[in-house]
């Protein structure tokens, strides 16, 4: 059914910290790995070792340079995956009912056995979160690792999306953004979490935490500098003899 639920019990999603992300792409790789080996059609590659390699990814990391009016430019790494929008246009455009948003947790999923691969949902997504798998002919998207987060066969610590579990910088957080008392909601409130392209009216669940202001590098006088001045020592003993002996050889000093 491609009609959106009026409301969802929970709003599970990600909070991505643009201040902390180091742009290592570990989340990209772990996502590709988990989602190739587990639920749904594998994420195929086309000509992976050829001249023009390409493949299906559910999560990609961009890097942007932001140049303020004054001061130094800042490099910001920017992971991007499905934002599990409350008003998801990809769901309502689907002609087959393959695209749906779950009432219980708000996760947007694709029923791969009903998808005809028309691509219209990818057209309707402003974020480029959906990619048509060329091998399978069906639409692939982030499932929020629906096969991990409720999976009782996994240790509890692993019951989060693969990208969150993998991130070495702790830049990715997972939780219920519909609950104002959840850790992720508090984080969003504290750090001023933002929506991407709010003007599109998609009401994304995933939030991005903006980079914190950078420390200023100021001209300063170091009172300790004289005390820390390098102390040149004349070599003694064997090294001293060697130094002098080498100085006497023709060829000049370095």
């Amino acid at each position: 059914m491609t009609e959106l639920p009026a409301s969802t019990t929970r709003k599970m999603g990600l909070v991505i910290d643009l201040d902390t992300c180091v742009g290592c792409h570990a989340c990209v790789i772990s996502c590709k790995g988990w989602n190739t080996e587990n639920y749904g059609a594998p994420l195929s590659d086309q000509s992976p070792y050829g001249a023009d390699p390409s493949g299906t990814f559910l999560n990609r990391v961009h890097s942007y340079e932001v140049q303020p009016d004054q001061g130094a430019a800042q490099l910001i790494h920017f992971p991007k995956s499905c934002l599990h929008c409350e008003d998801a246009p990809c769901v309502t455009v689907c002609p087959t009912g393959a695209s749906y948003k779950r009432v219980e947790d708000g996760i947007v999923l694709v029923n791969e056995s009903h998808c005809i691969g028309c691509g219209l949902c990818a057209w309707s997504c402003p974020y480029g979160a959906r990619e048509l798998d060329l091998a399978e002919g069906v639409m692939k998207k982030c499932t929020l690792c629906v096969d991990r987060i409720y999976n009782e066969n996994l240790p509890e610590v692993d019951r989060v999306p693969s990208c969150v579990r993998t991130c070495p910088a702790g830049a990715r957080h997972f939780g219920d953004l519909g609950d104002p008392d959840s850790e992720v909601s508090k984080l969003v409130a504290e750090r001023g979490g933002m929506d991407l392209m709010p003007e599109m009216g998609t009401k994304p669940v995933n939030k991005y935490l903006p980079p914190r202001p950078k420390d200023q590098i100021e001209e300063q006088i170091d009172v300790l500098a004289p005390l820390l001045a390098p102390v040149a020592e004349e070599p003694k003993g064997f090294l001293g003899w060697l130094d002098k002996a080498l100085d006497k050889l023709p060829g000049g000093n370095a």
């Binding site: 932001v66 929506d195 903006p210």
Partner: peptide, 14 residues
């Protein structure tokens, strides 16, 4: 608006 970083300066895809 796409990156949410527009208010901080000129954004360029690096």
């Amino acid at each position: 608006t796409a990156t949410g970083l527009g208010a901080r300066g000129a954004v360029r895809a690096f």
